[in-house]
Design a protein around this nucleic acid. Structure first.
Lengths: 205, 205
DNA sequence: AAAGAAAATGAACGATGTTCAATTTTCCAA
DNA sequence: TTGGAAAATTGAACATCGTTCATTTTCTTT
């Protein structure tokens, strides 16, 4: 049955090829300006082939979405070396920001997927479970900080949500600004400065 | 010249009528599922008429976008009565959150307008100036807090940006969650709880 | 009432996402 | 080697979208 195995690998390879081309075009031309035809042309396949490997355009978006979260969680792995939870928490924000600012188009994709989404799809649930997965890493770290005596008088869930919202909010505002051409070109972004303020605040908690 | 005046008023009225119908359809069906034809049908006019009053679909989106910011800044006016800047800052966040959670679709429109945007339009600059306008209210208030001795050892610009990012981030995460059907139906939203944690932190600064 | 101006129309165009019958390629048994 | 079944690929065709513009209708003025 080696043949079947190779076929399966080929299928995965072509699927990956489609995704690679789609991602490149999304970044270059934007999601709306990227047509299925342009993706097919880029990899020298026909339109129909793309539809064999992906149900529709949203499925491609969804796959890239998933890739993005996997990519991000990969970056988080360096944090396993940081034993002190407070230091880990601080570093986690920096990793998150670096990822978002370095891959703004991918980050956009990861968090602006509501419009073309069918409501309440099973797929959709998966999507947010992945988001929840990254959030769990944050929640766990905050919990460990509290166990060590930090954040006295605060509640775990809302506090973790606030921290995620803060980092996400600054990143998405900055990315929006940049895609609108409002770029001040500072070497250190306002996002990192803003996060610096938060770090100074955390030192007191 | 009474005729010309009435004509001008009619034009404005029809423009407003188009916007009203567009907003309703955007909220009901989503932006992508709302066609120019459906807008025209809703107000019993032809497709062409819509294009007489708006250059294209983006122009309608832009007009609604502007309306949203005007609406939000209207809600901010109750804050003029709060003389203490720290109290005003706290209240400002609550007003902002209430607006976002009460008008999630409008809020979405206001901050997810990058995709269909032409890069570096003069229009685009206007857009962000409006956004900057609302941000200026926040910046000014933070400045007054610092003048009164709060936020020692912090920088105005990054701190204000961090606060905006935090509130915006929590709101947009919550709105995304809801539009995906992940609704826990708590009476008090996680956003308000998260903001509550921030308020407790601010009391120490 | 007629002519000119303004407003409204909707058929038509190009492009898009999507489908599917037809075609080509790949595979393995005879 | 070969023949035909299974799998993979194709691209013409369809519905719908945003958009345009020559034409028609409505209104204003003389």
């Amino acid at each position: 049955m080696a043949v079947a195995d190779r076929k399966a690998k080929d299928k995965e390879a072509l699927k990956a090829l489609i995704l690679k081309a789609a991602k490149k075009l999304f970044v270059e031309k934007g999601v709306d300006q990227t047509t299925i035809r342009s993706i097919a042309t880029a990899i020298d396949y026909s339109v129909g082939t793309v539809y064999v490997y992906f149900k529709d355009k949203n499925a491609i978006l969804h796959a890239l979405h998933t890739q993005g979260f996997i990519h991000l969680s990969g970056h988080f792995k360096v944090l396993y070396n940081v034993s002190d939870p407070m230091e880990r928490l601080k570093a986690m924000g920096k990793v998150y920001i670096k990822f978002a600012i370095t891959n703004p188009d991918m980050y956009d994709l990861m968090f602006s997927l509501k419009a073309p989404m069918e409501f309440l799809d099973a797929i959709n649930q998966e999507e947010w479970n992945e988001g929840k997965g990254t959030f769990d890493v944050l929640r766990t770290t905050v919990k460990q900080c509290m166990d060590k005596g930090h954040f006295k008088g605060h509640q775990l869930e809302p506090l973790a949500f606030m921290i995620w919202g803060m980092v996400h909010g600054m990143c998405s505002l900055e990315i929006s600004k940049r895609s609108c051409g409002v770029n001040l070109g500072k070497p250190e972004t306002i996002v990192e400065e803003g996060y610096g303020e938060f770090l100074r605040i955390m030192d007191k908690l």
